[in-house]
Amino acid sequence: MAITVKVMERPIGEASYVRATLKGLALTLKHLVDPHRVTIQYPEEKWDLSPRWRGTHRMLTTEDGTAKCVACGLCPTVCPANCIKLVPGEDEEGNRFPLVFEIDEFRCIFCGFCQEVCPEEAIHMGRHYENAEFNRARFVYDLERLTAQTHPVSELWDPAHPRGE
């Protein structure tokens, strides 16, 4: 028995692709001439980060270039991810300073508690996002590396606000 195929009769206006193609081309043309552009030409152009952006850490330094940290131990205590390793020591003048200060940025959850809790305003979250490295060990930032960072730091609170210090 032969198979009969039912062929639908459709009007040419619906079946033709010419109309849809022209519509698409019109949209493309519109975007070609429209000055509104959302694409950023990374890495030549960089995204403008929020002042509250919490990226990899930075340790601020005093005028003489040493870290502001006094090794009080609050950041490793408050850190929910347990990513800060701190060993306190004493310098020649008897001042407390961190002998070892390491942050494992892989383990860090970027909550910003360390910056919030720091009584010396030493450790800060950074407004920074380019962290690629060639091996895992490089993601454990030691004190030297944390102080050498130059990117801007996060503002977790508005300094202009009366309760924002």
Binding site: A71, C72, G73, T77, P88, G89, E90, R96
Partner: peptide, 9 residues
């Protein structure tokens, strides 16, 4: 014990 550890650790 000076500067060796914090009491809560």
């Amino acid at each position: 014990f000076l500067n060796k550890a914090r009491a809560w650790e």
